[in-house]
Design a protein around this nucleic acid. Structure first.
Lengths: 142, 142
DNA sequence: AAATTTGCTTGCCATTTGCAAGTAAACAAA
DNA sequence: TTTGTTTACTTGCAAATGGCAAGCAAATTT
């Protein structure tokens, strides 16, 4: 796996060097906001990611410390992907993507987004705590 | 200019359909946080964007309402690009990119980011108001 | 033993990127 | 007035990436 080359010393560019792409954040979205956690789960998401792209991004995410994979306890041919502190710290960013998107998308506003906008800090903290505890307790999703 | 196709009805994916790329947000960063406002200004940024990519992204940004171009009053062969409400609304998102980046980049933390983290809401409002006023007064940068 | 589930890999073609060079209009200097 | 410079692109080309379909392999179920 080739190292990511950073283009400058700007922290915004630094983040984009990892996240500036149409797919990576969608995988993290699934891990943060849904109970999805496996290759097949991600494949089934509405955006229809291609199998080779998904495999590539999972490799990249793991190599860079955003996720950690483990064999499913029930099925040995199934892998479970979990978040790390590094990716849990991306919740505020992804929440802002959601807020901006739902403001400019003509699509009907989702209830979840309304709640979120009413108490952004609180909702973020809530999600964050849940995911951090899951991390510590070593009892990841499914 | 071809229309952007949205991949799903998810607001996060909606945002990424416009912003999911390594360059677009860097142009907006320059417009939001620095006094850069022209093709040549953006070219000179630390990340060394290629000329064809820059031209392409400026076209895309304008076609989608993120920036508005006008001829420079002093020099008729110079174009000035300005933010719109749509892109000013991206400040919180870009601020989160900065915060996350400066947390995980080993590079020395910038003073500006420290200030920002102490009073995120206030700093965002401050920048936002400045840019909105510039928009209204129709007296854009340089 | 055969079919299915799960997680990939491979091949192929189209699109995008990145670099270098070229073009063109406005402007400035000689 | 001619010549060079600034500014903003465009073009050509090779390399990398993306997207689709098919193939493969280990584990599990039937």
């Amino acid at each position: 796996m080739k190292e990511i080359q950073h283009r400058s010393d700007c922290p915004i560019a630094y983040s984009l060097d990892y996240l500036g792409d149409k797919w990576i954040i969608l995988i993290l979205r699934d891990l943060i906001f849904t109970s999805k956690s496996s290759y097949g789960d991600f494949l089934s998401s509405g955006e229809k990611i291609a199998t080779n792209i998904l495999a590539d991004r999972l490799k990249l995410l793991e190599a860079n410390g955003f996720i950690k994979s483990s064999v499913s306890p029930e099925k040995k041919n199934k892998f479970i992907y979990n978040l790390t502190e590094k990716s849990i710290d991306l919740i505020p960013l992804i929440v802002e993507l959601m807020i901006w998107g739902s403001k400019y998308d003509s699509y009907p506003i989702k209830e979840a987004v309304k709640k979120l906008e009413k108490d952004k800090e609180g909702t973020i903290r809530e999600i964050r705590e849940k995911l951090l505890q899951r991390l510590k307790s070593d009892a990841p999703a499914k």
